[in-house]
Each structure stands twice: as C-alpha cells, then as structure tokens.
Design a protein around this nucleic acid. Structure first.
Lengths: 342, 342
DNA sequence: CGCGTTGACAGTCACGTTTCTGCATGATCA
DNA sequence: TGATCATGCAGAAACGTGACTGTCAACGCG
C-alpha cells in the first residue's frame, strides 16, 4: 500500500487517520490510492497497537442448559437490539458471549468492556473481567458484592407496589403472584415487594413459584394458582408468558377476565394488545435500558466520567388494558410512580 | 510473564499451546505461573500473528430505518440464538453488525467469516467481504448473482404448495394470501408459488401485500383482505404477526375460525398454541438453519470442504392446529413434502 | 573415539499498525 | 548571511504472539 502510493508507511497512516502534518494534496492522493486498491487497515494490528478493539461483550446469564436466552423473553431481544444500535452509533460492535466461565472463548476476543444482563451473585466471569481492569456494566442491580463498574435497572419494588395498588383500586380483594424459583435480583426484589405489600394491607400472600426458564412449568404453575382453595381474584405474573398461561388457566376454570379475575403481567410482547381480552402489562422499557447501559459503558471505556460509580434507574410503564379494569376499558397509558427521571 | 517463570517467551508459548518439545515438568511449571499471575495471552496479538480472530459477523438485512430486526420476528431471534450456540461450540464468537455499507464499523473488527441473513440483491457488504477473500454464508437463497460462499434455506415453494394443498384438503374453496411488498427471496418465492398454485387449480389469486417491517400495516392489510368482495374462506399469512392480526380481523367481521375461515401463518412463536382457537403455523426451523449456517461457514473458514459451493435445504414443519381443520381438531404434527433430508 | 541424533530450550523475525523522533528543505528574520 | 523555524515526510521502535532456526548437552552406536 505504501509502496503503491509512493510514500512511506507513516504518511499512509497519517493521511488515513487525519493526523500528522500533511498537505491536503498528499492526503487526497493517499486516500485515492487506498480506495482504488480497496485497502483496509488491519483491525488486528490496530487493536494490538492501540489497545482498543471497539468490541463490547454482551452476556445473558442463564439458568437452563442452553447458553443463551435471547429468544426466551422479548425483554432480552429488545434490550440487545437497543444496545447493539447504541453501541454502533458510537463506533462499537457487540460480541455475544456465554455466561459460562469457560476462559477459552472469552480470552480469544479482545474486549474494551462488557455488558452483563442480570448477573448472578459472585459471577466468576465478572470478577475476572474486573480483575483485568475492564469496565463491566450490568443490566440489573448487582447482587451482593459483585464489583461492577456501573449498573442500570428499573425500580422493581416501586413497579410491583404500583401494580398491586392498581389492582386493588380496580376492586381486587385477594391478589396472587406468579413468581420464579430463581435467585436473581428481579425475582427477589419483586417477590419481597409483594410480601411487604401483603403485610401492609393485611392480605395473606397467595403465590406460586416455578423455574422461570421452563415454559411448561409456567402453565402448570398458573393452573395451580387458580386451583387453590384460596383462589385469588387478581394475579400479577412476573414473567412474559404468564399472561397467556393465566388466561388459558382462567378459561379452563370458567373464570371471566376481568369480571372474575383481574390480570397483569410483566411483558414486552405486543401480543397482549390483541388477546381476548387484551391484558394489562408492565413494560420494563428494555430499549431505554439497553441504550443507557451502552452509554455508561462506553463513557467508562473512553474515560469520560470515571469519577464515581454510575447507578441509573429507568422508570417502568404500566400499559393498562381490559384485563385489569372492572369498568369499561379505556385504552390509556398511565406510568406508575417512577422514583427518578431519565 | 516469561521472566516471572524464569523461561523464554518461546517456552511460554510452547507450553501454553501444547507445542514444541518440552518435558511435562516445564509445561506444568509454566502453566502454574500463568495461572497464578492471571496471565491471558493477548487476543489481538494472536489474531495479528495467526490471521484468525475466532470472530464471525452476523448481519440481518433490514428494510426499516432501525439497523436491526432481531426482535421483529421470532425467527431472527431463534436463528441467531442457535447460530451463537453452534459457533460457540466450535470456539467462535458472533459479532452483531449492521447491514449498512458503512465501512468504519466493519473494517474495525477482524472477522474470519460472515453470516448474512436474507441478503438483498447485490448487497454491497457481501461483495466487499467476498472481495477480501472472506467466506460468506447466507441464510436464504441469494438473489441474482450475489457471490456468497454457500447458503442454507428452506424450500419455500414446496412449503407454500404444501400449505395450500392442506387448506384445500380441509375444504377451502378460495385461499387468500397475506404477503409483503419487499423484494427479498422469501417473499418473492412464496408469492410466486402461490400464484402458480392458483393458476394450476384455476383459482383467482386473492392477496394483499404490505411492508413487512411495519406492524400496523399488517393489521390493516389483514382487515383489507377480509373486507374484499371476493373474501377468501382460507388465508395463509407469510409473516409472524399475521396470525393474531387475521384472528382479530375475523372477529371484527364476525367470522368464526375455522368454521368460516381457515387460517395458517408462518411463525415460530408459541403464542399460536394458546390462541382462541389455536392457529396452524409453518415453522421454518430457524434453529436448524442457524446451526447449519454456522457449520458450513466454519468448515469453509477452516478449509474443511473447499471443493465446491454448499447449498443446503432444511425441511419446514407444518404444525397443524384447530384453525386449519374443519373436523374436530387432532393435535398432530405433519411435515410437508420436503425435497431433501438433512 | 567420532558422528549423527535427540531433547530442551533461547533467539529472532514477522504480522501491520501507531507514534515518536529525526532529517531534510525552504522560508523568515535579525 | 547565518540562525531559527515551520513544513513535509521517512525511519524506527513497540505492541505480544507464533513459527522458524540455532545452540548446547547428553546419548547411542559402529
């Protein structure tokens, strides 16, 4: 390349990167020759020299045996898509990596930083990355003493309390919860918020837990919840498929929604807008979370705000539909209390 | 690192890579020191030296302004997940990249090869990659003279013909099609197969087309289709959300499914198992496609079968549910004719 | 005893950048 | 006119690895 343009390697580098002291004529000449030859600088060599690869790792911690759960819930897909877009806009690309601690894959790729979705307690991958000095930003408040650089999350407790109040306002006397058996932050915070709410209003908790990654178990748990002698007259489901599962279970037991059973579930799926009846959902705003996570991470990579750990709270949105209203449906959108702005 | 272990750089390299002629004692010693120091060989340097990065690009060509459509259809998410798993199992990681021809992102990452989902005609990114000598495998038969290394696809024509026969067998007299306005292979092949089938059996084509990336347009098109004076008594929808859209439209017009209207749509979503009624879907088996694409690509990268271009056809699966059966539903699974085995 | 062979490493180069330093050349100025 | 200085570029080091090549001792064998 340098030879073809009749200049030195230095001149080529300076011309293409806009550095050095070169007259515009030389710069144009070099670029022209580069274009003609289809020359592309080697990313590997640049990474080796500069120490920056422009790559960001993306990990979803999972509980099943499959290494990934992109498709499991719409939340992950939405979040990943937003993160990819945001990273790209700042010149970074996302590498999908497994949450397992198998070093061979992780150490084979030069990363500038990592996004971890819903990290578990004492995640070995996170510890290793932090030890290497790489910034790690998590989607989801880190459990225990996980040493992440920053995190972004919703206020899950406020969201659950808002939903329970909403259901109580709609006339619910005994609100049930469909929750998970896993120990991640989301499940934990949501469940304890529910229990505290029950205690406050003096209602006996009515809930069923199941392994959230098992779609069959969700349907069974929904059925169990509605088969109980202390059957609830309103249910909030923590996971995306709970809405359809609960709807099917209600149908089996001859319960009309919303007349006999009020229903809300946490989901990003649009199918709940056209179920019969449409189901009220809580959106965690994965697009905003994905974008925020990437911005914070890239800021850390580029040393833009290394003063203190960043903790960002994204408000949720309750999309009220027929399933949680005893009165005739109004298709309005009302956000729950959100502790902080964006 | 070399100094810490008291040996030369060469010895470290040989010890960690299992090469050279070293006694096991030295090998163990070096590995022990490496573990203790938390030493990881530089991926960038290795890539520069070996010319292999262990990274595979993944691109979804899109038609909207958003750079990605992972979440748009469950197909993409499933396919991407399977591809990620398969790549990982062979020591490769996936990098999500935009389908745009902006060079700056593409040339900033060292790729060993690329997976392109549903490439459009004369895709500039594909041409550029092939020119660089990188293997490119596409999900979807390439249009025109797109110079991909290999491709994997379903036999969309056979699938459509199978569905139309299935609907005709169930008593349909006039079968309609909900299709797209885009020019991708899937839409094109499916639509022409429909038109040929109509010609063969002597039925006037009844179809509505809409821009597939616009979710609102889908609902409108479904409505249009059922509002026509020559209203079909069976409809096949080419895209994932068509099932719920058509179901909602049928409800508006007071049409019972399957009594007044038979319904099939192409989807990977499980929601159609629990709609009212459950809807028959065609699965393109995205997991098998994603796995196959990665295997073919990595084989090409590693030079395992460079003898000839690989073209692989994955059979589809028709999941028959209530919506396409006039007789009482039997929940059986019957694959359509599939031209080749796997 | 001489010679080839093998084991066990160390030395060195090259991968393709970026970046720092250095060297001409011509212009400016005292 | 000689000193200073900006300009325009070339040279060379370094990034950390992997693949050769080289060296030196020990050893077997005729």
């Amino acid at each position: 390349m340098a030879a073809a343009a009749g200049v030195s390697i230095t001149t080529v580098s300076d011309a293409l990167n806009g550095k050095g002291r070169l007259p515009d004529a030389t710069r144009r000449h070099v670029r022209e020759v580069a274009d003609r030859l289809g020359y592309r600088p080697s990313a590997a060599a640049r990474t080796l020299r500069t120490g920056k690869s422009g790559l960001i790792g993306l990990t979803v911690t999972t509980y099943g045996d499959e290494p990934f759960t992109f498709t499991e819930f719409a939340y992950f897909a939405e979040m990943a898509r937003a993160a990819t877009s945001a990273a790209l806009a700042r010149g970074y690309a996302l590498v999908i990596l497994p949450a397992t601690s198998r070093h061979d894959v992780w150490s084979n790729v030069a990363l500038d930083g990592t996004v971890v979705i819903d990290p578990s307690d004492h995640d070995p991958v996170v510890s290793e990355l932090v030890r290497q000095g790489l910034p790690v930003v998590s989607d989801g408040r880190p459990v225990g003493s996980l040493p992440v650089t920053a995190w972004v999350d919703n206020d899950h407790e406020a969201a659950v309390l808002g939903i329970l109040d909403h259901l109580a306002d709609a006339g619910a006397r005994r609100i049930g919860l469909l929750t998970g058996t896993t120990t991640d932050t989301y499940t934990h915070l949501s469940t304890t918020a529910y229990l505290r709410w029950c205690e406050r209003v003096g209602q006996d908790p009515v809930y069923e837990a199941y392994p959230a990654h098992d779609p069959c178990a969700g349907a069974v748990a929904a059925d169990r919840l509605l088969a109980r002698p202390d059957r609830p007259d309103a249910v909030y489901g923590l996971f995306d498929p709970n809405g359809t599962d609960l709807l099917a279970a209600a149908r089996r037991y001859g319960l009309r929604v919303p007349e006999d059973l009020l229903l809300v579930c946490c989901s990003e799926s649009t199918v709940y807008a056209s179920t019969e009846p449409p189901i009220t959902t809580l959106s965690l705003k994965p697009r905003r979370i994905g974008t925020a996570v990437i911005q914070v991470l890239i800021d850390a990579i580029e040393g833009l705000n290394s003063d203190q750990p960043v903790e960002q709270v994204i408000p949720t949105e309750l999309i009220v539909r027929t399933s949680s209203q005893r009165r005739p449906p109004r298709t309005t959108v009302s956000p729950p209390r959100s502790p902080e702005g964006d």
